[in-house]
Design a protein around this nucleic acid. Structure first.
Lengths: 339, 339
DNA sequence: TTGTAAGCGTTATCAA
DNA sequence: TTGATAACGCTTACAA
């Protein structure tokens, strides 16, 4: 008995011989419904192929059952992996995930927040990539929905924040290179280091570690790179190989770029790890399969995804709690690229 | 003048001293609105920080302005790249994209369709990975929204279908290996080859090409692999290296697996391309950066994304047109792995 | 060009 | 335990 066109809750109610409220109560498992009525309703739903209308539900209830996840770029391996973990974690709690793309620009990040309100999302996990996100996010007042910031913190400190061990992780990576015998250790970071961004933090970790080990940091050994482009990473490899600075190790601020750098070194006949050692940050899946497999700082991504979802849910319950800050645990994974 | 809580179209209307319909007309750029009224409305929107409620709009109008994209796995490089292209293409037409994950299982694919109806999506681009999708998709009748199938076709032939040149592409890849001097060419495919799936088609392209070049296909040279796991690809590399079959070339059904295979060969001391040549399929971004860079069949992904979005939009206008079928153009990209 | 009225499908509230 | 009613915020249809 398949009705043509849209089947509403009303249709199901008529089929089952009950009121729409009873159907609603069965679907949402809300109040007590007699086993008899419940059975008839479930049968009617099955027969009719009824699907609840999310727009109507969300309009009336004000909640959508959907959490937003805004990332700079969905094609980036790191964010793809992270999205998958968030989806799994949200599902465990009965939530759906809507993925947005910010393009790693401030307006994109602000747009994601606006879009979340439009779509009545129940929360937003917002991966902040810009430092000047400040300009776009700061003026936002009515922060309606729970927001968890990843990467950079909200400059206004309004959001919960989950981050990775930028300083400590990079320091440990740098020390690992020292332990492997490197003395002329270059560092590859993004952007400028004027503000306190992820790049600055990782750069600081590198410097601190060198100083701790009695090696004087050489400013010439810092190479800046365009963050999201693989070509940029590759040409940075060329620059390092051509620098004539006697580099014997490279700390790179993330795995994607590290692999690009290694590729660029290879273009110049510089082999990793024989001629130069390289370590990354993130431990994306492909790092284990790259040739050479990539040593890296491995934050606990699952922990991070779980914490982000947890924070959203707990803030739905308690919107007024003060903003919280968490840092994921990490390990150093030693692979071929630093052997 | 920022109102606390939800600002509705009505609030904006009052602020601007017009009716809600005038506000609606301004927002949707629908009928003629006097420049004066329009200006006041836009000012009121700016002042109040009004955001339209997507749920209400979609409930009333029956349209959401959102196209769904359901892929097996968002962390997969191929689907990540494709999602990005679809997002860009949809945006050009004023549409938003909601990404779903099917897990490459039939129930996931069917769930994505159901979810699309619930969410009032205006269309669904559905990347079909399962052959037994037949069992889950076939019984679906009320196909409410426009659906475009990618990868495998809808077994019932109800959906528009955009595909890649499975046979021709793999045949060209195989011929390229022959041209490079390979004679014992292995093939890596997924699953069993009982049904006519993407795997079968690519396998057929391989066989046809060999026969065309007067090389007799050897069934022992076919290696099956678990599609979505990188570990599986790597161990396939081990199996090929350990096989003692004198393999000098490998045609792999996609790039991700090809890179895993090369990694596995490397584990056994088999170097690509010196000891063995390898070619993939897809031309994902990282293939150019892998070491060795990967030769591959490169379908025009942008073309494919554009065609998929076009088909959705044209079907919104004309739901009853007969299903259409398109195949993306391709080129063979020669890189180090087959040099 | 602008405004009024009705209703999209669901759920909160309250009465039965 | 169940049902009637109103309302969520917007757009369609039509009247002014």
């Amino acid at each position: 008995m398949v009705k043509r066109g849209k089947i509403t809750m009303n249709d199901v109610a008529q089929l089952a011989g009950v009121s729409t409220m009873t159907v609603s109560n069965v679907i949402n498992d809300r109040v007590k419904v007699s086993p008899d009525a419940r059975e008839r309703v479930l049968a009617a739903i099955r027969e009719s192929g009824y699907q609840i209308n999310a727009a109507a539900r969300s309009l009336r209830s004000g909640r959508s059952g959907v959490i937003g996840l805004a990332v700079p770029q969905v094609s980036n391996a790191y964010f793809g992996m992270f999205a998958e973990l968030v989806i799994a974690e949200a599902r465990r709690h009965g939530y759906h995930v809507a993925i947005e793309q910010t393009g790693a620009v401030a307006v994109g990040e602000a747009a994601a927040v606006a879009q979340s309100r439009r779509l009545q999302l129940d929360g937003l996990i917002l991966s902040l990539a810009t430092a000047d996100a400040q300009s776009a996010l700061l003026p936002m007042t009515d922060q309606g929905i729970p927001i968890v910031a990843l990467g950079e913190p909200d400059p206004a400190g309004r959001f919960d924040h989950v981050t990775v061990p930028n300083e400590a992780g990079t320091a440990a990576a740098t020390e690992h290179l020292v332990d492997q015998g490197c003395r002329r250790i270059a560092v590859v970071t993004g952007g400028n280091l004027d503000r306190l961004t992820m790049f600055t933090r990782r750069y600081n970790g590198y410097r601190t570690a060198l100083e701790d080990r009695g090696i004087r940091p050489d400013p010439k050994l810092r190479f800046a790179v365009d963050t999201l482009s693989r070509e940029g990473a590759r040409s940075t490899g060329h620059r390092i190989a051509d620098s004539g600075l006697g580099v014997d190790g490279v700390v790179v601020f993330n795995d994607m770029v590290a692999m690009g750098v290694i590729r660029g070194l290879k273009d110049r006949g510089v082999n990793v790890p024989d001629d130069m050692r390289v370590i990354g940050f993130d431990d994306v899946a492909e790092s284990a399969f790259f040739i050479p497999s990539l040593s890296t700082v491995s934050p606990d991504h699952r922990w991070k995804a779980a914490k982000a979802v947890d924070l959203i849910l707990s803030r739905i319950d308690d919107p007024l709690a003060p903003p919280r800050e968490y840092t994921a645990p990490f390990t150093i994974v030693r692979r071929e690229s630093t052997a």
